[in-house]
Simulated assay, not measured.
Amino acid sequence: MDKAAKERQAIGLFFYLLSKMYNRTLAYELHFTPLDRHFHTLWLIYEHKSQISQQALADLLKIDKAAMTRIVRDLEKKGMIVRRENPHDGRSYWLALSRKGEQTAKDALEAIDELHTEVFMGFSPDEEKQFMQMLERVYKNLTLQPESDAFLCFLKSTRESQKS
């Protein structure tokens, strides 16, 4: 087997290890919070201004209903989130951050920014931008319907709001 084939085969392991190291480092940076995981879940609720349904959150995170239910129960038990009735649809609920959850989300955002700086140490701004664009292309390649993908729609709306 040639070197290129071995590198192609290793990409899954590489992404897996990067994910493990990134999340472990983030958890270490946030050891003073009551959370040991689900930082990105809080971040997404924060970004949606506490107006996101459990199903929409599950779609963004690419997890099934049962896993999302376990995460929500864990975050509720830790006092991070509360369920609020959706004013537009009385049959559904929005997930909202509690005061404690909002502070933890802000702490997590600060830690993510610091980790981002560490991750991209030695990268020029152009290299960082190119890397992020390449990751998005990889994501799109693995997504069956990129036009309707909840995460891609979220990224697009986030970029548009940052421009204004």
Rank of each mutant, 00 (worst) to 15 (best):
residue 44 L to K: 03
residue 148 S to M: 10
residue 162 Q to Y: 12
residue 58 A to R: 04
residue 98 S to I: 09
residue 36 D to M: 00
residue 119 V to T: 08
residue 11 I to K: 11
residue 82 V to W: 01
residue 21 M to L: 10
residue 6 K to D: 03
residue 144 L to F: 14
residue 142 L to R: 05
residue 57 L to K: 05
residue 4 A to R: 05
residue 78 K to M: 14
residue 101 G to E: 08
residue 66 A to Y: 05
residue 129 K to Y: 10
residue 120 F to N: 03
residue 25 T to S: 05
residue 109 L to C: 08
residue 152 L to R: 01
residue 14 F to W: 11
residue 44 L to C: 11
residue 158 T to H: 13
residue 131 F to A: 14
residue 150 A to T: 04
residue 85 E to H: 06
residue 70 R to K: 14
residue 136 E to W: 00
residue 44 L to A: 09
residue 84 R to S: 13
residue 104 T to K: 01
residue 54 Q to H: 13
residue 14 F to N: 10
residue 47 E to S: 08
residue 107 D to V: 13
residue 84 R to T: 14
residue 152 L to F: 08
residue 139 Y to I: 07
residue 54 Q to Y: 11
residue 137 R to F: 11
residue 147 E to Y: 01
residue 54 Q to S: 15
residue 42 L to Y: 07
residue 116 H to T: 07
residue 98 S to Y: 01
residue 138 V to H: 12
residue 90 G to N: 05
residue 162 Q to R: 12
residue 84 R to I: 15
residue 65 K to R: 11
residue 47 E to A: 01
residue 141 N to G: 15
residue 59 D to Q: 07
residue 6 K to A: 07
residue 61 L to N: 09
residue 132 M to N: 10
residue 14 F to M: 12
residue 40 H to Y: 15
residue 144 L to E: 12
residue 83 R to E: 06
residue 152 L to E: 10
residue 76 E to C: 00
residue 117 T to G: 03
residue 6 K to C: 00
residue 12 G to E: 07
residue 88 H to N: 14
residue 2 D to M: 04
residue 129 K to D: 04
residue 48 H to G: 05
residue 64 D to G: 14
residue 147 E to L: 07
residue 88 H to P: 04
residue 96 A to Y: 04
residue 8 R to C: 01
residue 55 Q to W: 08
residue 62 K to R: 15
residue 119 V to E: 00
residue 46 Y to D: 14
residue 3 K to D: 07
residue 128 E to W: 02
residue 26 L to A: 02
residue 153 C to P: 06
residue 75 L to D: 00
residue 35 L to S: 05
residue 145 Q to H: 10
residue 31 H to T: 10
residue 14 F to R: 06
residue 66 A to R: 06
residue 83 R to K: 11
residue 161 S to F: 07
residue 100 K to H: 14
residue 30 L to A: 04
residue 96 A to R: 02
residue 107 D to H: 15
residue 50 S to V: 15
residue 91 R to G: 07
residue 83 R to C: 03
residue 129 K to Q: 08
residue 19 S to D: 14
residue 143 T to P: 04
residue 107 D to A: 15
residue 122 G to R: 03
residue 51 Q to R: 12
residue 29 E to S: 11
residue 100 K to G: 12
residue 96 A to H: 00
residue 113 D to M: 08
residue 100 K to S: 14
residue 39 F to H: 01
residue 119 V to Y: 07
residue 114 E to D: 07
residue 80 M to Y: 01
residue 47 E to V: 01
residue 92 S to C: 03
residue 90 G to L: 04
residue 53 S to T: 15
residue 143 T to V: 09
residue 124 S to Y: 11
residue 46 Y to V: 05
residue 119 V to L: 10
residue 29 E to C: 09
residue 120 F to L: 04
residue 27 A to H: 03
residue 90 G to D: 05
residue 123 F to N: 09
residue 95 L to A: 01
residue 133 Q to L: 12
residue 13 L to W: 07
residue 87 P to E: 12
residue 47 E to F: 06
residue 60 L to S: 07
residue 129 K to L: 14
residue 111 A to W: 01
residue 58 A to F: 06
residue 35 L to Y: 02
residue 31 H to M: 14
residue 106 K to A: 10
